[in-house]
């Protein structure tokens, strides 16, 4: 007897809650629909988010979102459904896989890394350059047989007939003397 009463009470309670549950499912507001729709793009007009698109196709899609939310689907369920049905291209945030992964994620990171690397190399080059300019100039004359080994002669010093500085090499001194004469003329 007591069990029967409990059963009846439970049944009455369930019946009382049923309209509330049905009403809750039907009562999906436009804001809730648009909250999902803003992460989808219109299939017909390019680059128009679904929540602001005025076409009939988008109105149909928004109604489908409402139906799915009312049926208990989560926001992610709805987005997954649209991606499956119409392709990843309708998602405002395409999943990180395939070509989307490369173009939207790997490529920007690579570009930043590459830019950073080139910038670093440029900076390092700028640091090295002043040191080299400030140091002693290298002897432009190659070392080897017949080349002067001492300090470079002053070719522009004043003098007559003979080189102003002796290199110790007679032929070279003679050559320098002729060059000096030519320069004076």
């Amino acid at each position: 007897m007591r069990k029967n009463v409990i059963r009846w009470l439970l049944l009455v309670l369930l019946l009382a809650l049923l309209p509330v549950a049905v009403h809750a499912q039907d009562d999906i507001s436009d804001d809730e629909v648009n909250e999902v729709a803003k992460d989808l793009y219109c299939p017909v007009c390019e680059s128009t988010p679904l929540d602001v698109c005025p076409t009939q196709a988008c109105a149909d899609w928004r109604e489908l979102i409402r139906t799915k939310l009312a049926a208990g689907d989560t926001r992610q369920d709805v987005l997954d459904y649209f991606a499956r049905q119409y392709g990843d291209g309708v998602l405002a945030n395409p999943p990180r896989r395939g070509i989307s992964l490369i173009v939207l994620w790997v490529l920007p990171v690579l570009i930043v890394l590459l830019g950073g690397l080139l910038f670093f190399r440029l900076l390092r080059g700028m640091r090295v350059a002043p040191t080299a300019a400030g140091g002693p100039l290298p002897n432009p004359l190659p070392k080897g047989e017949g080349a002067p080994t001492g300090p470079l002669p002053n070719l522009f010093a004043k003098g007559e007939g003979a080189p102003t500085a002796k290199t110790g090499d007679e032929s070279l001194d003679d050559y320098i003397a002729r060059v000096e004469r030519d320069l004076k003329q």
Binding site: L141, P142, K143, G144, E145, G146, A147, S171, L172
Partner: peptide, 15 residues
Amino acid sequence: MSETIPTTQTAVDQP
């Protein structure tokens, strides 16, 4: 003065 002054030759000899 037939002797030539070695100038560029040494560059070739450079390692």
